[in-house]
Design a protein around this nucleic acid. Structure first.
Ligand code: MN
Ligand code: MN
Ligand code: ZN
Ligand code: ZN
Lengths: 155, 155
DNA sequence: ATGATATTGATTTTGATTATCATTATAATT
DNA sequence: AATTATAATGATAATCAAAATCAATATCAT
């Protein structure tokens, strides 16, 4: 996502809520956009610290929350990535699901229109009004298999 | 799941690990099987307390963990059910995914063979060896819509 | 019954996330 | 530029589910 587009998104949200612009906020958002990956709060905190060592952990959490509320980013809680939440920039991107390597943690973004259609079919079948869904596929990536990790038993 | 089948599953696990049979363990497992639903540790704790008020919370957690390790039950962490983990009896049942009402918390179990096939197609496409997946569909159930909750705007 | 070992319940600790709070920064107004 | 009102900051404490600790008790092979 373009930095300016992200800023437009956040700025309209800040304006609507009478919130102020601030240095730390800018730095955290810019660092996150630049990183362009599925980060934990701690990972982002360390990245931001490199630019501005004064930044506090609480501000990173607060800014992530703000970004989620504004629709700019999204919380991800994978089953097999420890206990901590990851975040991803969402704005300006298509909806997608995730394929996760249980060995190296690699995250691949996937989208399948037919899969989405079938999910909607299930909503209809059970008479639910659809709001959202979460699909995560866990497995072993090619690289990890080559390295002899996550092999099929006997394979 | 039949109580005897569950006990066979857990007992073979206990035997393999040189673990002992115990009253509290039995009571917790029986209560969970009888409840036959997607429970939190706390909910199960309260159910078990009715039968045996001496039981401790820690033992409920320990037994749930044991059941998960033995393959008898499974952790569920839904996005929109507060922060706490739910558990379900797994052994002797088919794999299934979940449809969750974001208003009343109702959980509907769903299975779609074609959906499963497409997921496997995605694993193949990205050269992942498939291990597991998680699909959750969030929406508003018929009952909640009738009560005017979770309506589509303008609908 | 004995003894070795596992389990229990009460309690404390952990670890990620939030809340609190005095100080500082922002931005509008004079 | 100084004033003012309000929001944001960083340090720290609080929260909460889940795990770890530990002395007392239960299990089970002998
Ligand atoms: Mn993603
Ligand atoms: Mn289920
Ligand atoms: Zn991998
Ligand atoms: Zn409902």
């Amino acid at each position: 996502m373009a930095k300016n587009e992200a800023h437009a998104s956040i700025e309209s949200y800040l304006a609507a809520k009478n919130l102020k612009h601030s240095r730390p906020r800018q730095e955290i958002i810019d660092t996150f956009i630049k990183a362009d990956s599925h980060l934990t709060a701690e990972e982002l905190y360390h990245l931001v610290k490199k630019k501005n060592p004064k930044i506090g952990f609480a501000t990173v959490y607060r800014t992530l929350k703000l970004m989620c509320e504004s629709g700019l980013c999204k919380e991800l809680k994978f089953e097999k990535s420890g206990d901590c939440t990851r975040y991803e920039i969402l704005k300006g991107r298509e909806h997608h699901d995730h394929l996760i390597c249980t060995h190296c943690g690699t995250v691949v973004e996937v989208f399948d229109a037919e899969l989405e259609r079938m999910q909607n079919r299930l909503f209809k079948l059970h008479d639910f009004y659809p709001q959202s869904h979460r699909l995560e596929l866990y497995g072993t990536c090619k690289t990890c298999r080559k390295r002899g990790r996550g092999k099929v038993s006997g394979g």
